[in-house]
Design a protein around this nucleic acid. Structure first.
Lengths: 139, 139
DNA sequence: CTTTGTGCAAACGATTTGCAGGATG
DNA sequence: CATCCTGCAAATCGTTTGCACAAAG
């Protein structure tokens, strides 16, 4: 996919959700899509303003909130007191290295599916996520 | 187990970890052990001071931190921006109702174990946890 | 031109810290 | 009696909010 196509793809996604396409919102979403780590709001802000000022702090926070509401982005909880964001919408699990903090995505199919029947009577399962803790190949 | 035995059990656990047994620390840990929900620091503070002032805010926070460091207590991440605590050390998973927020423990054995072999080459698995989202029997 | 988004700075809630006095082992 | 813990209040961190102005459709 060319650079240009990627841009159009993002614009299409935002419009499809009824969002106005502003440079700041575009930048936040594009940044999240192009990164493979799971950055915090602060990480994104830093990255966007690395070269030239692009967005303010408040705008990054509000963009993330908006993108989350329309399900283009989701929050990931892997560490205590840290909110991370992820634009990978395909269901997947996470592997976090306890030593260096690196986070790797684990494809949904990579795990044998759980047998969730009759877990707790009367409770309906919507979805589930697995977080694996361990040591990565470099630690 | 009698009330008295429970108290002695707690004192033994704290001493075994090299911690001094203060009334405040005792109260925080005992409170957490006797509750089946997964309270926040604030919840614990409220509960302890319900009848008579027992601990200050700073002390509850510091006790939780200390108890966590010695592995008598662990943090649970189930909702965005909320830190909950749990003194149940037996490995278990969590089920959270998306409607009322109720959290239920799922015994480790209740889930068919995951096949975690060959997940990612070079990565060693320490442990994993499953968070299930759904609707509880009362919602 | 109407509506929505941005940026600033102030407000906020949860958690942490500095420090003096108090309790524990 | 040395060390560790507590409580208060102030500091800090991440996030949210109010509001005037700017930009998008």
């Amino acid at each position: 996919m060319t650079m240009q196509q990627q841009r159009e793809e993002i614009i299409r996604a935002l419009k499809a959700k009824g969002l106005r396409v502003t440079p700041q919102r575009f930048a936040v979403y594009a940044n999240l899509l192009h990164r493979c780590d799971h950055p915090t709001a602060e990480d994104i802000l830093q990255d966007l303003n690395r070269v030239a000022p692009t967005s303010s702090q408040a705008t990054v926070y509000s963009s993330l909130q908006t993108l989350r509401q329309v399900n283009l982005v989701r929050e990931v909880l892997l560490e205590e007191g840290v909110r991370r964001y992820d634009a990978n919408l395909k269901p997947h699990h996470h592997f976090r290295c306890q030593y260096c903090g690196t986070i790797a995505d684990i494809a949904w199919q990579a795990l044998a599916h759980l047998d969730l029947k009759n877990l707790k009577s009367g409770w309906q399962i919507q979805d589930y996520e697995v977080t694996i803790h361990g040591r990565c190949d470099r630690c």
